[in-house]
Measured scan of single mutants.
Amino acid sequence: RSVMTEEYKVPDGMVGFIIGRGGEQISRIQQESGCKIQIAPDSGGLPERSCMLTGTPESVQSAKRLLDQIVE
């Protein structure tokens, strides 16, 4: 099973929602998708923050879907 890492951008203002209280939302996304998510510590003043998604292609797709649901 191939593991890939893909960069994915999320709106900087939504990072708090994505991480959730005490990190529980991001933990849930990682468990549900099976994908490891690393969010950049800051956006460098840009409107979007970079996330690194690491996992199988299916888990990366799944994580993107879950992130999109939060961001919308």
Rank of each mutant, 00 (worst) to 15 (best):
Q31D: 15
L46H: 13
P47S: 12
S2N: 04
L67I: 14
R1E: 03
I18G: 03
S33T: 11
Q61S: 13
V71W: 06
Q61N: 12
L66S: 11
R1K: 07
P57T: 10
V71H: 04
D12Q: 11
K64H: 04
K36M: 09
E24N: 03
V10G: 02
K9R: 09
A40V: 06
S50D: 12
I70T: 15
V60K: 02
K9L: 08
L67Y: 00
L46Y: 06
G55N: 00
F17A: 15
M14Q: 06
G13R: 13
I29V: 11
G45K: 06
I19D: 06
G45Q: 10
A63V: 02
I26E: 02
P47Y: 04
L66F: 06
E72V: 15
I37M: 07
A40I: 08
I19S: 09
T5K: 13
E72H: 13
Q38Y: 04
S59Y: 01
Q25V: 07
V60T: 04
G16D: 15
I26T: 06
R1W: 02
G20F: 03
V3W: 07
S33D: 00
V3P: 06
G20P: 02
Q31C: 14
S27H: 13
R28I: 02
C35G: 01
P57L: 09
I70V: 14
S33Q: 01
R49V: 05
I29C: 03
K36R: 11
P41L: 03
V3T: 13
L53T: 00
Q69D: 15
S27Y: 07
G45M: 06
G13V: 02
L46I: 06
M52P: 01
D68K: 14
P11F: 03
A40H: 08
R49D: 03
D42A: 10
R49G: 06
I70G: 05
P41K: 10
E72T: 15
E7F: 03
V10W: 03
V71Q: 13
A63S: 02
V71N: 06
S33N: 01
R1V: 10
V15I: 07
R28W: 05
E24V: 07
M4G: 04
S2P: 08
P41A: 10
S2Q: 15
Q61I: 11
A40E: 12
K36E: 12
E72L: 12
S27C: 10
S2C: 06
T54R: 07
A40Q: 10
D68N: 12
T56K: 11
V60R: 13
R28Y: 04
T5V: 09
M52G: 04
V60D: 01
C35N: 00
V10F: 06
E7D: 02
E72Y: 13
Q30G: 03
L67A: 01
S43L: 05
R21G: 08
V15W: 07
I18W: 05
Q61E: 15
M52T: 11
S59F: 01
V15G: 04
E48N: 12
Y8N: 01
Q31M: 08
L66Y: 07
K64P: 01
G23C: 05
K36Q: 10
G22I: 06
V60L: 13
T56A: 10
M14L: 13
C51N: 00
G23T: 04
G22P: 03
G45V: 05
G22M: 04
E24K: 10
L53K: 00
R28E: 09
I37G: 00
Y8R: 02
E48Y: 15
K36H: 10
Q31K: 14
G22F: 05
I37A: 02
Q25H: 12
K36W: 04
E72Q: 15
K9W: 07
T54F: 05
E72D: 09
E6M: 13
V15M: 11
A63Q: 01
G34C: 06
T56D: 08
M14W: 06
V60E: 00
K36F: 10
G23K: 09
I26G: 02
P41G: 08
Y8M: 05
I70F: 15
P47I: 09
I39P: 04
Q25S: 12
M14V: 13
S59E: 14
T5Q: 12
Q61R: 14
G55R: 00
S62V: 14
I39H: 02
M4R: 03
I26V: 05
Q25C: 09
I70P: 02
E32P: 01
V3F: 07
V3L: 09
